[in-house]
Amino acid sequence: MANDLKPTADFEETFGKLDIRLGQVLSAEPAPGTLKKSYRLKIDFGKYGVRTSVGRFTGHPPEELIGRQVMGVLNLAPRQIGDVQSDVLVLGIQFRGAESGEATPVTPMTEGKLGSKLF
């Protein structure tokens, strides 16, 4: 077992509090005013509406992100990132070979219903 794992957490007190849902990227464009190159994404979460996210997914060209389904955390407090208020956190993992913070989004293996909850 890896030594760098974090301590065991209670499901209901941690993961159970997050509202993680499936959305589809409608648009991706450079985010104005950010310290590091980032995209402003408009994401459709079905009955939960269209949300804005700012993220460092710039290892992908915008046209590769548009139409892609992604997982986002809907119930975190909004954050001001550059000139944009980001109101959803798109989940991602480190982009292979990129600097720290540069990510590729977490996507499902098959398309799902927009707004579906991750469990």
Rank of each mutant, 00 (worst) to 15 (best):
M1N: 07
A2I: 09
A2V: 11
N3S: 13
N3D: 11
N3K: 15
D4V: 12
D4E: 12
D4Q: 14
L5C: 02
L5F: 14
L5K: 12
K6W: 08
P7Q: 08
P7N: 07
T8C: 05
T8Q: 09
A9D: 04
A9L: 14
D10I: 03
T14C: 05
T14S: 12
F15T: 10
G16K: 13
G16E: 04
K17H: 02
K17Y: 01
L18P: 01
L18N: 01
L18T: 07
D19Y: 03
D19V: 04
D19I: 09
R21V: 06
R21A: 06
L22H: 01
L22G: 02
G23C: 10
Q24P: 00
Q24E: 02
V25E: 08
L26G: 06
S27D: 02
A28V: 09
E29L: 10
E29K: 15
E29N: 11
A31E: 01
A31S: 14
A31C: 11
P32V: 05
G33P: 09
G33I: 11
L35D: 11
K36N: 13
K37W: 00
S38L: 05
S38E: 03
Y39L: 08
R40G: 07
L41Q: 01
K42Q: 15
I43K: 05
D44L: 05
D44W: 06
K47C: 06
G49V: 04
G49I: 06
V50F: 04
R51C: 04
G55M: 12
R56N: 10
R56P: 03
F57H: 02
H60P: 00
H60K: 15
H60C: 05
P61V: 13
P61A: 08
P62G: 03
P62I: 13
E63L: 00
E64W: 02
G67F: 03
G67V: 07
G67I: 06
G67W: 08
R68K: 15
R68M: 15
R68P: 00
R68W: 00
Q69C: 14
V70G: 03
M71L: 15
G72Q: 10
G72F: 04
L74R: 01
L74N: 02
L74Q: 01
L76Y: 11
A77T: 03
A77G: 02
A77K: 10
A77S: 08
P78M: 07
P78T: 08
P78Y: 04
P78R: 12
R79K: 10
R79I: 05
Q80Y: 00
Q80M: 14
Q80T: 12
I81H: 11
I81R: 08
I81Y: 07
G82K: 06
D83H: 14
D83G: 14
S86Q: 11
D87F: 07
D87E: 08
V88F: 06
L91Q: 15
G92Q: 07
G92Y: 11
G92R: 11
Q94F: 06
F95Y: 04
R96Y: 00
G97L: 05
A98N: 00
E99R: 13
E99T: 12
S100M: 07
S100V: 11
S100Y: 09
S100E: 13
P105D: 06
P105C: 12
V106T: 13
T107H: 13
T107Q: 14
M109D: 13
T110H: 13
K113M: 02
L114W: 01
L114Y: 02
G115R: 05
S116T: 09
K117E: 05
K117D: 01
K117S: 04
